[in-house]
Design a protein around this nucleic acid. Structure first.
Lengths: 369, 369
DNA sequence: ATTAGCACTCTCACCATTAGAGTGCTAACG
DNA sequence: CGTTAGCACTCTAATGGTGAGAGTGCTAAT
């Protein structure tokens, strides 16, 4: 169960397993991590025996700590300070020291209940998921809508809004909707030089819907050559829309709880804060995440320097994909300081990803409650 | 021209006009504001004569400053510090001291050019507007899409996405699009208990489009009673969608340049920062802004405590509405510290609002370039 | 009305000192 | 041999004192 949560850390050479550690080292490391996660102050040997009922003296703990430091799992801000887990220390903790449990039943019910309260809009689901993640892990949450890897044509609607404006509304195969204004001049020229009527637009839309269903951008382009001038022109626009939809658009990413992160003492000063905020605003780090997440499925934890993105060396990610891997894929997870409550974050992310799966794949069938 | 930029400060009793001030006071106040806006450090009498070529001695300036302080336009962090403008001081400055010019031609062209580069998506426009505002004023920019005060039915499309999923995509009268999943169970029951086909959905959509065009939520509800079961059921959903669209949804607000604000020295420490960020995230302050902005049109400046929202006593807003006041209305503007470069922000906001007007009302007609 | 001069106030940077926390080492102990 | 008590050592963080500098407000002279 706990080993589902793994990492992209495979390149960092010696994959140190828990078996390298003595029982005492394991206990001490776990205690250090948990204490530091809780209090954000480097933890000393004495504090550890006091607070965790260890049956040995502080001196013994000290030597264990020294060993762990030699292994690179703990570090030392300065001579007379307590120990702090290193990224690698957190990694070992996450992989084999952490007592991870599934989300308890009360929490699960509470979350389900919130979802049942909400309107059937997928945007509302996403917002809610982000909000739940953020409050329950006290980190920043990020949720992207589920989208097909390659956008496919679903169904189009051409609307005359006013004399001046015609609009194309394209429903993608994955249920997402993209819209675009049409250049009226170009359209009218194609339709016998007259102002196009709604009827003509409907006819064009019907032609497109008959021809293009399920096609991707290049396929649409190829097929367009066989159409009449007006539908052909729109088909080109459609192809562009499909291409754009192939990226995760920042505007569609739901985030919540950014303040949770900024409140953490490690981001008290401006510089680091700025970096985090910038990353979070333009959420392009998500694009880099997609391949990693899909390759392994389940919950992925990326701790500090394990992240390839320089700006994120001070933070950890706990993310999972959701949705049907090939037809529609979304990402969801939390971002927080490396000093993150992993035993809480991981099950929450896991649970929410399965929940979103249910919602997305079979909404209407069974009622889940 | 400068008096277009006014405020909601009318309730604060003595509307002190510029005529109350001597010429010297005016010069000193202007210099203090401009220096402080530039350097963010309280400005002393000596610095003022040095930097602004005043032909008087520092002692004279000091007495002028003392007068201004008595009038409540300047204030004094502590005995031996320089002066800082008060909210009221900024107000006077904005209303009658500031040398505001229209945006110069180069800037205008540069902005227009950027808009011409971009795809015809209205979302892209909004994003671009936010980005331009943010970079050119070095503040946080906020742009909402233009939406009708009361959402009106435009055109609907009912799509069968998969066996399980049917979706309603509603184009509003103002060109915005809202979507919603339909409860398949309910629908099938209405359609003779069979799985509804795309053809049936199309028929229902056609019926709705014929009946509901231009109607608001309550009107749709009333009309629904006269429809067949399936369209009637969808009409109810439509009414709900229209109602939801009547709020400014946070998800649709485009912000940019938040970091610009957080970099400002006045937000160096955590507490204030937190407030600002929270306000900016859940952008409900915009709702409060709508009536004020529409009542007066043009650019509105709200400085520090003039804002009714407690969390925004440390910041200033420079906002303008855009769009056709009755058919579709959007907001755009910047948020920054009270120490804001008003002479730059105001013309920029003004220009962008007129530009968005052009884009929105007649996009296709004339080419603007 | 303006200005030079001056006493006064307050901040800020600098320094020294100290208390406390925590370590690492060593020697003693079971 | 692992564990522990004891102790010297190091580093931080808080405290307080000092002095320079900036800026004011007042007064008296121009």
């Amino acid at each position: 169960m706990a080993d589902e949560a793994t990492t992209q850390g495979e390149r960092s050479a010696p994959h140190r397993s828990t078996s390298d550690l003595s029982e005492r080292q394991r206990i001490v490391l776990r205690a250090v991590v948990e204490d530091y996660v809780l209090n954000a102050i480097p933890v000393g040997s004495q504090a550890l025996v006091d607070r965790y009922g260890l049956l040995v003296s502080s001196a013994t703990v000290r030597s264990a700590m020294a060993e762990l430091e030699a292994l690179g799992l703990l570090s030392h801000p300065h001579t007379s300070a307590g120990r702090v887990p290193s990224d690698l220390g957190y990694r070992i903790y996450v992989e084999s020291l952490m007592r991870e449990s599934a989300l308890d039943n009360a929490d699960q019910l509470m979350i389900r209940h919130q979802f049942s309260q909400v309107q059937l809009t997928s945007n509302e689901w996403l917002r809610l998921a982000a909000s739940i993640l953020a409050t329950s892990t006290r980190s920043a949450a990020v949720v992207t809508p589920a989208r097909a890897r390659r956008a496919k044509y679903g169904h189009i609607q051409l609307v005359e809004l006013s004399d001046q404006t015609r609009m194309a509304v394209l429903v993608l195969g994955d249920g997402n909707v993209v819209q675009r204004r049409l250049d009226r001049g170009a359209i009218d020229r194609l339709a016998q030089g007259q102002a196009t009527s709604q009827a003509e637009l409907d006819a064009a839309a019907a032609a497109l819907n008959a021809e293009l269903s399920g096609l991707s951008a290049p396929q649409v382009r190829r097929r367009a050559t066989k159409l009449n001038p007006l539908p052909a022109h729109v088909a080109e626009v459609v192809a562009q829309m499909l291409e754009e939809a192939d990226h995760i658009a920042v505007e569609e990413v739901f985030t919540d709880g950014i303040v949770n992160v900024l409140e953490q003492p490690e981001f008290a000063e401006g510089a680091k804060l700025r970096g985090v905020l910038e990353v979070l605003q333009r959420s392009d780090f998500l694009e880099q995440l997609v391949p990693v997440l899909t390759r392994r499925g389940g919950v992925t934890v990326i701790i500090g320097h394990e992240n390839v993105n320089d700006a994120m060396h001070e933070v950890s990610l706990v993310f999972a994909p959701y949705g049907n891997t090939d037809s529609a894929l979304g990402l969801l997870g939390v971002l927080g300081p490396t000093r993150m409550p992993y035993p809480r974050a991981i099950p929450t992310v896991r649970y929410l990803s399965t929940l979103m799966n249910e919602l997305i794949s079979s909404h209407s069938g069974e009622t889940h409650d």
